[in-house]
Simulated scan of single mutants.
Amino acid sequence: MGYVYLALAIIAEVLGTTALQACDGFTKVLPSSIVVTGYGLAFYFLSLVLKTIPMGIAYAIWAGVGIVLIGIAGAIFFKQIPDIPAMIGMGLIVSGVAVINVFSKTVSH
C-alpha cells in the first residue's frame, strides 16, 4: 500500500505545484485552493508512505518522479519546453530512481 500512497502523494504535489504557477501570487482563488489542497494531501499521503517505505527512498522517488511530471506539466500547460540539458538532467534523475528501486536493499518491496 506504501507505493499507492506514494503515487497519490506525487500526483497531489504535481497538481499543487502546477496550480502554483497559475495562482499569481495567491491572488486567484481557485488555483490557490488547489495549491493548498494539493500540498496538504501530498504531505498527508507522504506521512502514510513513511510507515512502510524508508524516508530517503520515498523522498528520492517522490522528488524524482515529481520533477519529471512537473517538467511535463510545465510544457503542456505553460509552454515551458525544457532544453536538451534539462531533459538529460531529468533522465539522469529517473535513472537514479530506477537504480534505487532495482538495486537498493533499502527499498522494501
Rank of each mutant, 00 (worst) to 15 (best):
P85N: 03
A86F: 03
G56K: 01
P82G: 02
L8T: 09
L8E: 06
H109L: 13
Y59P: 04
G64Q: 00
I88H: 06
M90W: 09
P82E: 04
V35Q: 05
I70A: 11
P85E: 03
P54L: 01
T18F: 11
S95K: 04
V107L: 14
F45Y: 08
V68L: 08
V107C: 10
V99L: 15
I34W: 10
G40F: 08
A63W: 00
M1D: 07
A42S: 15
A22V: 09
C23D: 10
I72C: 04
G91Y: 13
G66I: 04
L8P: 06
T17F: 10
M87P: 01
P82R: 02
S104I: 12
I84R: 01
C23N: 14
T17H: 13
L41Y: 05
T52H: 12
K28V: 15
Y59H: 02
I76W: 01
Y59S: 01
L92W: 12
N101T: 13
S32F: 12
P85G: 02
A60F: 00
V94S: 11
E13M: 06
G40A: 12
I93T: 14
G56L: 01
A9F: 12
I88E: 06
L46E: 09
S33I: 14
I84D: 00
Y59N: 02
W62T: 00
V35A: 06
S104Q: 11
Y3G: 07
L50R: 07
S47H: 10
P82A: 03
G74S: 08
L6W: 08
V68H: 03
A86L: 02
S47F: 10
A98M: 15
V102N: 05
Y44G: 09
E13H: 09
I72F: 02
I53Y: 02
S33Q: 07
I70Q: 12
S33R: 11
T17N: 14
L46F: 10
A98N: 07
L20T: 14
P82I: 03
